[in-house]
């Protein structure tokens, strides 16, 4: 029988949050009691499985399938599989899930491009790419403010804020520090910067329209007053996304989370998750470069020395891109 203090110490250790007392308790228990080693192995395995399960996990529930699809659901019931790629994913027959389509249509109608929304953005590998992911550096999480096509994104890279965005004119800017930045007119944005902008940005209306046009949708009761919509590209349709999962609050119709698996090229297998943190009103200035550099900062533009902006991007963009492992 293992003492509760030892259990707590093991739990805190595996959770990466032990106190000095926990470490002492753990060290003593592991030296004296073989059962403590077994418990540590057991809890560490639980920790590892929870990480995997957490990726796309929702409580296991039957998908909400409209009555007219019920016969087909039964016919496919024996073939329902749990795929390992992203936790639980019930492979049900493609069906016109009227509830899912309706939920997405209503969320689209309720989305207001004039609002400013703040999301936390995380970029990670789908699980089937974990081996490649293990060979590359972690990509920093970021905060996104977005209004229509305007956005500003801020990430901490090596402890320092890096900001980039698109202003009302369509110009795209990149500021790796408050004293240096590069500014590109809408027509001259280099591909590498456009890719980073595209990877981490969320144009909600476009996403929802794409889901309605090109994806098979399934609705699940996500509990907590929200619908969980899982979307898979229709067979034969080439899309910019792989699987997509969104959470829609039933009452407000707000999309509070979107997890988007990218497809194609080096982004294949990358899942970008946008978690809504705030809907508010920001001044236009927040999307402009001036708000993210100090007065007197060096801003490289079209008139700057040839290659200077590219050099700045080469130096700083790599940390924000998904790296060689996926290319």
């Amino acid at each position: 029988m293992i003492d509760d203090d030892v259990k707590r110490a093991i739990d805190a250790w595996v959770d990466g949050d032990p106190s000095a007392d926990d470490e002492q308790t753990l060290g003593r228990a592991l030296a004296a009691d073989p059962a403590a080693v077994g418990l540590l192995a057991d809890r560490a395995r639980l920790h590892a499985l929870l990480r995997d399960a957490g990726g796309w996990h929702e409580p296991r529930q039957a998908p909400v399938v409209p009555r007219r699809a019920f016969g087909r659901k039964l016919a496919w019931g024996g073939a329902a599989l749990i795929a390992g790629g992203a936790g639980l994913w019930l492979m049900l027959p493609p069906s016109a899930d009227a509830g899912a389509v309706d939920a997405v249509q209503r969320a689209l109608a309720a989305s207001r491009p004039a609002e400013d929304r703040r999301y936390s953005v995380s970029v990670g590998p789908a699980r089937q790419w974990r081996f490649a992911a293990a060979q590359r550096s972690a990509v920093p999480a970021s905060t996104l403010w977005v209004r229509g096509s305007r956005f500003v994104q801020i990430a901490l890279v090596a402890g320092r804020p890096v900001a980039w965005g698109r202003d009302a004119t369509g110009a795209v800017w990149f500021a790796p520090s408050r004293d240096t930045a590069a500014l590109f007119d809408a027509t001259e944005v280099p591909e590498a910067l456009a890719e980073v902008c595209d990877l981490r940005s969320l144009d909600l209306a476009t996403l929802l329209e794409t889901l309605l046009a090109e994806f098979d949708l399934q609705r699940f009761d996500g509990g907590d007053g929200h619908d969980l919509i899982r979307a898979t590209p229709r067979a034969g349709v080439a899309t910019a996304y792989g699987r997509v999962e969104i959470e829609i609050e039933r009452e407000s119709l707000v999309v509070r989370r979107a997890a988007v698996e990218r497809s194609g090229g080096w982004r294949r297998g990358i899942v970008v998750t946008f978690t809504l943190e705030e809907i508010g009103v920001q001044g236009d200035g927040v999307y402009e470069l001036a708000a993210h550099v100090d007065a007197g900062a060096t801003v490289l533009g079209r008139e700057s020395a040839r290659g200077a902006r590219g050099e700045l991007l080469r130096e700083h963009l790599q940390a924000l891109r998904q790296p060689e492992g996926n290319r």
Binding site: L40, A44, A48, L49, R130
Partner: peptide, 10 residues
Amino acid sequence: EPSVRAYVAA
């Protein structure tokens, strides 16, 4: 990988 991850976590 799950077993390695668990080992490293432990």
